Simulated scan of single mutants.
Amino acid sequence: MSAPLLTLAGVHTHIGPYHILQGVDLQVPRGQLTMLLGRNGAGKSTTLRTIMGLWRASAGAIGFAGASLRGVGTADIAARGIAYVPENMGIFSDLTVRENMLLAARSGPMDGARLEWIFTLFPSLKQFWDKPAGKLSGGQKQMVAIGRALVEPRQLYMFDEPSKGLAPVMVNSMVAALRALKEQGATVLLVEQNLAVAQALGDSVAVMDAGRVIHHGAMAQLAADADLQQRLLGLHLAAAPAPAPAGEGA
């Protein structure tokens, strides 16, 4: 396994009176796509938000690229090279697709070659370049959110359930884009409920329950063990067909 780019050790997070993360231990290997799986309410989204500093860890260590993220502000965490796409996408509905992308280009003007690469992944971004992002379909908004995360190279990309609520053809487009990002050697932490997506993309996997990581290992190992899937997730990967490469739909 590659050396970890991101490490969480004994991380606890309280939100008001609620103790959500209860000692999370997690390693995200450099250059791999790590799946973060678990039932609803297991603490997956809270883990991503805690890494980004949107919610502050009350105990434990968060290390990224050899430095601590504990106590660092969200803007500074992003500036260190972490792109984060939340479950609600976080796009600016009143701004055009172009303006949404420009805001993500922290280092200056958008790189033309990289932008053309993004257009090959998501042709609708070019088609709706000057239209308000809020007027797009749910799937197209998700493409804007992912495209915005890709507009500059980052050390780590974190996506929170990017396939949620998408039509199958849009899921296929999203999987193809993440596969292309993975083939470039990117480090990705991906929260998913769609186990077929997890199977199609994951190198390593961590499974959460009740605010802790209860299993970690190779995604292929989990995909091959139906009993382990049932015990950890209450589901079987074989129950859902894997996404197939497809063109982007509406």
Rank of each mutant, 00 (worst) to 15 (best):
M1A: 11
P4W: 09
T7C: 11
A9T: 03
G10Q: 04
T13Y: 03
H14L: 02
H19F: 08
V24H: 01
G31Q: 07
T34G: 02
M35I: 13
G41T: 14
G41W: 04
A42E: 11
K44S: 08
T46I: 12
L48S: 09
L48I: 07
R49M: 14
I51T: 08
W55P: 00
S58I: 02
A61T: 10
F64Q: 02
F64G: 00
F64Y: 14
G66R: 14
S68K: 10
S68L: 09
L69T: 08
V72P: 01
I77W: 02
Y84M: 12
Y84G: 09
P86N: 11
M89T: 05
M89F: 15
G90R: 03
G90Y: 12
S93R: 15
D94V: 09
L95I: 03
E99N: 03
A104M: 06
M110P: 08
D111P: 06
A113L: 10
L115Y: 08
T120R: 15
T120D: 15
P123N: 07
P123L: 10
L125A: 07
K126A: 15
Q127T: 06
D130E: 14
D130H: 14
G134R: 12
K135N: 12
K135Q: 13
G138H: 11
Q142A: 10
V144I: 14
I146P: 00
G147E: 09
A149Q: 02
L150V: 03
P153H: 07
R154L: 03
K164I: 10
G165C: 11
A167Q: 13
P168R: 13
V169I: 15
S173R: 05
A177G: 00
K182R: 14
K182H: 14
E183P: 02
G185H: 06
A186T: 02
A186C: 04
T187K: 03
T187P: 10
L190D: 04
Q193C: 04
A196D: 09
Q199D: 12
V205C: 12
V205L: 10
A206V: 05
M208R: 07
D209R: 15
R212P: 06
G217S: 07
M219Q: 15
M219S: 14
A220G: 01
L222Q: 10
L222T: 11
L222D: 11
A224H: 01
A224V: 02
A224S: 08
D227L: 05
L228Q: 14
L228P: 05
R231A: 15
L232A: 13
L235S: 04
H236N: 05
P243R: 12
A246Q: 12
A246R: 12
A246Y: 00
G247I: 05
G249P: 06
A250M: 06
